[in-house]
Design a protein around this nucleic acid. Structure first.
Length: 605
DNA sequence: CCGACAGCCCAACATT
DNA sequence: AATGTTGGGCTG
């Protein structure tokens, strides 16, 4: 720590083995930090690329410490070490694939506080004063905790993160420093390029692939997308008991494997292959040669499904071995999940639109076929999305038959993913709720689970969820419906009578996709609130979370910290409550307006 | 500058 | 007032 005038010692809450070293000049402090950095083969930071290491380097220059004396190498967007490997966990945890597939979306904002809370259940030391006003002991405590959290993010769960990085290195053939910073498209590029070189193949230029194979032939449903994607089945609204959810095992990678897809084989030059058409497209696939992507993605898929996944569940293996298999299968899953998308991404060096398009087309065909077959053998299909079918009360035999049929006819693995005791569908796609046998509740897409909605509505929604978890049979529903009506009514009255506890409970929370000034086409509500904050001198940028409430007067929103209770637009909130709950109430045969006591007549007055 | 994809829902905004 | 567009949050 740097000795400074007027800084008090403070009271130490640190454990006795912590040693504090004081320096009387910043230069000496920095030189000592550098000495320590030289000693370590790995240095882990959280945002060290953009802050810690960069800052140290620049401070060092101020004191005339020469570049040769510093252990830090300055890159354009990275800071590396001359001896040792610097891993910036901020970059690693920021990676969408890591966030979603490796950590199941447990953290949302990529901050040390958020990620630590989510993954290791620990928090930063909270401080009320500006850093400069802390006593030495407070500062020491604060910094030490940050260091501990950062380290523990790599050590928790048997060093999961370090193992994951190591496995990804081995698959992608990239150095740890790169693999921990770059996105999944770079991993896949590196992996495919390596195999090209190993087989002594030419690596095509990006523009040559596009020139020869061309663009896409199908029309996307969503404006602005390049090609047609997945199918979503119109749900059968209502409550359904005993719903089996079947899905294809890693559908897209399986298609790439089974259908021999790759930039070489789709629209190949052989006239005799032109009859080997891909359903729903004018494209054909080669019948003579194997595509490298198909081979490699297929091999990865098989390794995961047939070796690593079963080994990770094999109870006869020692714990640490099983754990290692688990890490590997998770790492392969991350790569497989992205392996189709990259072919449709312009930024990918083996970008090949017809390959992506063919994969999606075959997926539609496969799902359609399964639905058709299910109906043929007498099963009602309630819903389906991309790779799944929701079957109403099927028998064991029917399920077995469907799975066998898929294996034989489509060469595609179909499995029972889960069974819902009952499921609730509205008429909306990607919006449903399922209660599993053990009482866990899956909520998909419903407004009630979205993170931007006010706490007061979310809490009511969660109460309803808990109540629904207790329903075992259709007879149970009668009482549950009454209880749910009461939950909705309570929340309605709390709003109508302005009896909320805190204003924060009414706040919507929306992330800025851009810096406020960049919104030129429209001004969404959270941007309006953001601009009010900016007027107060708050600096805002993309990624910042804006919390605002809805008020009566123009512009109808206010940042929560600037608002008062009496200006709240209660009717807006009631409207929101209504639309949130109606997604479920509809299916239960309940009516929002009746619940809150409006008779049909009153509603028309 | 940042970089896997498409489809769906909702609310608010902008335009006709 | 009706209709299309934008932006965010979600599913898969």
């Amino acid at each position: 720590m740097l000795k400074r005038e007027e800084v008090r010692e403070g009271i130490s809450k640190l454990s006795p083995e912590v040693e504090i070293v004081y320096f009387d000049s910043e230069e000496k402090l920095i030189r000592e930090i550098f000495n320590i950095l030289w000693e370590y083969p790995f240095v882990i930071t959280f945002n060290g690329d953009d802050f810690d290491l960069r800052y140290l380097l620049h401070r060092a220059e101020r004191f005339g410490i020469r570049r040769e004396e510093t252990p830090i190498e300055l890159g354009r967007r990275v800071c590396t070490l001359k001896y040792g490997i610097h891993i910036d966990l901020y970059k690693f945890f920021f990676n969408r694939s890591i966030q979603v597939y490796a950590f199941g979306n447990k953290y949302r904002d990529v901050t040390l506080e958020e990620v630590s809370k989510a993954l290791i259940g620990k928090s930063k030391v909270s401080i009320e004063k500006p850093l400069t006003e802390l006593t030495y002991m407070e500062l020491a405590e604060y910094c030490l905790r940050d260091a501990e959290l950062t380290y523990e993010l790599t050590s928790f769960n048997n060093e999961l993160v370090m193992k994951l990085i190591l496995v990804l290195c081995r698959i992608s053939r990239m150095p740890m420093e790169d693999v921990s910073r770059q996105g999944v498209s770079r991993w896949i590029r590196s992996f495919l390029y390596y195999e090209h070189r190993r087989k002594n193949m030419l690596i095509p230029n990006t523009e040559d692939i596009l020139a020869i194979k061309g663009k896409t032939a199908t029309k996307a449903i969503i404006k602005g997308k390049k090609y047609k994607g997945a199918i979503v089945v119109e749900p059968v609204p209502g409550v359904h008991f005993n719903v089996a959810v079947l899905d294809f095992a890693s559908l897209y990678p399986s298609i790439i494997k089974v259908w021999n897809l790759g930039y070489q084989t789709v629209l190949c030059p052989h006239p005799e292959c032109k009859t080997n058409l891909i359903p729903d497209t004018p494209h054909w696939v080669c019948t003579k040669k194997r595509a490298l992507e198909s081979l490699l993605i297929g091999a990865l898929r098989d390794l995961r499904v047939k070796w690593y996944k079963p080994k990770s569940k094999d109870k006869s293996l020692p714990e640490d071995k099983r754990n290692w298999y688990e890490v590997i299968q998770a790492a392969i899953k991350v790569i497989l999940n992205a392996s189709y998308g990259v072919f449709g991404a312009e930024s990918f060096d083996l970008y090949c639109p017809p390959v992506a398009e063919a994969t999606a087309a075959i997926a539609r065909h496969s799902l359609t076929q399964v639905i058709k077959r299910a109906k043929e053998i007498g099963i009602e299909v309630l819903y389906g999305d991309t790779d799944s079918v929701f079957l109403k009360n099927p028998t064991k035999e029917q399920i077995e038959e469907l799975i066998e049929w898929s294996e034989k006819q489509l060469k595609m693995g179909l499995d029972v993913d889960k069974v819902y005791r009952y499921a609730v569908f509205s008429s909306r796609k990607k919006n449903y709720l399922g209660v599993m046998e053990d009482g866990r509740v899956d909520v998909k897409g419903l407004t009630g689970k979205k993170r931007h909605i006010p706490k007061i509505i979310k809490e009511a929604f969660d109460l309803m969820k808990e109540r629904l978890a207790q329903v075992k049979s259709s007879a149970d529903f009668e009482q549950a419906k009454k209880d749910i009506s009461q939950i909705v009514l309570d929340c309605y009255l709390k709003l109508k009578r302005r009896k909320w506890e805190k204003l924060e409970d009414l706040a919507f929370h929306v992330v800025l996709g851009e810096t406020p000034a960049n919104y030129v086409k429209t001004t969404p509500q959270h941007v309006k609130a953001a601009r009010l904050l900016e007027k107060r001198g708050v600096e805002l940028k993309a990624g910042d979370l804006i919390s605002f409430v809805k008020v009566v007067k123009e512009p109808h929103v206010k940042p929560v910290e600037l608002a008062t209770n009496n200006e709240i637009d209660v009717d807006k909130y009631i409207g929101y409550l209504q639309s949130t709950f109606e997604q479920v109430l509809d299916a239960l045969g309940l009516d929002f307006n009746e619940i809150i006591g409006l008779t049909k007549l009153e509603r028309f007055m």
